[in-house]
């Protein structure tokens, strides 16, 4: 039994939908968390041991739960937020909770690359903490942050393959249900090609954008 092209198009659409919506929310969560992880640490501009010591382990815990388990474990929360625990939209909640903390770590690592001298120069100019974050730290690492978002996006594509477990659909799901369980080589090949093109496209786009911003 072969898949129809309509099914493939539908699957691609579901993947893009899941990835883009969760990416937007994950960035909205990950970016501020990443910034907080940096500026609240010891010796930084908004040093705050309390916030840092709460945030840091929570992110570690979330990061250490395998996605397939997270998917099932937070079903009650998913139902609370989107009203249902199955389907494409329902898959978005665990995807966000999976990639938000991941993004926070990536952003944190990017921001830590900023030379301490830049912050010193900003402080010497009398910049406020918010000005330091938005006019110095983030612009200086924007290239790096773009690459982090690129990496997180590709991670999300991988994670959506498991969304089939709760009826999320998508390309990965198609490959498993048709290609693997029903021995359709064509489906496997087609989905792999689509995924490679997708990942490659996103990575190239991210690279070009980052290079443009980085100025070197």
């Amino acid at each position: 039994m072969e898949v129809t092209s309509d099914q493939v198009i539908q699957a691609v659409y579901e993947t893009i939908y899941m990835v883009s919506v969760s990416l937007v929310f994950a960035t909205m969560i990950g970016l501020p968390l990443g910034v907080l992880l940096v500026v609240t640490r010891k010796g930084h501009i908004l040093e705050n041991p309390l916030i840092f010591s709460i945030l840091n382990p929570i992110i570690n815990v979330l990061r250490s739960v395998p996605f397939i388990i997270l998917l099932v474990a937070i079903i009650p929360l998913t139902r609370l937020i989107v009203g249902t625990s199955i389907g494409t939209t329902a898959a978005i909640v665990p995807l966000i909770i999976y990639s938000g903390p991941y993004m926070a770590r990536l952003v944190e690592n990017s921001l830590l690359e900023v030379n301490a001298g830049i912050i010193e120069a900003a402080e010497a100019m009398g910049a406020t903490p918010l000005q330091i974050i938005f006019r110095f730290l983030i612009p200086e690492t924007l290239g790096s942050i773009i690459l982090s978002i690129t990496t997180a996006t590709i991670g999300l594509i991988g994670a959506t393959a498991m969304a089939g477990a709760i009826g999320g659909g998508g390309i990965g799901d198609l490959a498993i249900t048709y290609g693997y369980q029903r021995f359709s080589t064509m489906t496997i090949v087609a989905t792999v090609v689509i995924l490679v093109v997708l990942v490659q496209g996103i990575q190239s786009f991210g690279n070009v954008l980052a290079r443009k911003i980085r100025r070197n």
Binding site: N115, G117, I118, E120, A121, E123, A124, M125, G126, T128, F136, P139, E140, L142, G143, I213, R214, R215, N216
Partner: peptide, 22 residues
């Protein structure tokens, strides 16, 4: 007050500390 006083004090550094993206 300290922040406004800093406008009266310029500083230069060994490693220049310029913003590379500006």
């Amino acid at each position: 007050h300290l922040r406004s006083l800093k406008k009266n004090i310029g500083m230069i550094f060994q490693q220049f500390n310029l913003l590379s993206t500006k």
